[in-house]
Amino acid sequence: MNVIGKSISIDRQTSDSPVEKPGAGNPLVTPDSVKKPASHSNAQSLLLWFSGLQLQSFFIGTLSLTVGIVLWYLATKYNFNHFINFENVPSPLKVGAAFMIQLGDPEFYIHITVSIRRILIAYTIAVVLGVAIGVIVGRSKLARAAVIPYIEIIRPIPAVAWIPLAILMWPTEESSIVYITFLGALFPIILNTLHGVEQTPDVLVRAARSLGASKFAVFWHVVLPAALPSIAAGLAIGMGISWFSLLAGEIISGQYGIGYFTWDAYSLINYPDIVVGMLVIGGLGTLSTYLIKLMMKPALRWKEKQR
């Protein structure tokens, strides 16, 4: 078994293995049909070009944000008031100062950790249930017929509309907030999982069966991995929406949480803190969505490399 094929190397310039003997006796060795990627120097310049592009988009992004902050500053400095009123909007400098003060206040961190904890609990339950429901509904016609009407009716109801009923239904304020957060994350996860499961290529299922796969093996080795890119998208969207819903819940009830902090600042006419709260929400939402994407990345490595 020492016959290694003819020099079928990914990069012909680096194919220097002495074991290779071209030709004779190797079935299925076709010298063409080999993908020939760019040569080394080309690859390097491609990399440079790409990182240049990344650098460029980073630079443009920073510049764009700076312009936005400057416009904000100017609008507040000159009390811009044509249709939109900036007179009571705090300036970026005031917001920055308020943020620094909050950073020194231990209670500020309690607000943040309480919100994060609610997100973690609600999101985790939503992921487990959402993926499970999505998979079952995607695989079973019966489950589909039974579950889809619920999804269609409940999905368009915004988180805020749930607040009164949630407070009446759940034993504690905490559980009603977690419930509302959970609902926000649940539907995008279900629907994306369902979509992913449905679009499993039939030929892959047939291939797996001809290789001896049982129903469960088909599910585990074909349906689930095929659905994974779509599930990952659902997880990221679900994370964004769960923040969205959390805030709705926290504004109405609760003693802590970054939503409560924001609303409380409004009641106390502490305008800079409103914007601090808003920006922290934006930052945490972005960060958590990014973390979800980062966590899913190893499982989707194959997708990146597709031509």
Partner: peptide
């Protein structure tokens, strides 16, 4: 894989 000459991939 060796039989089809594609050990490298």
């Amino acid at each position: 894989l060796a039989m089809i000459g594609l050990t490298k991939i």
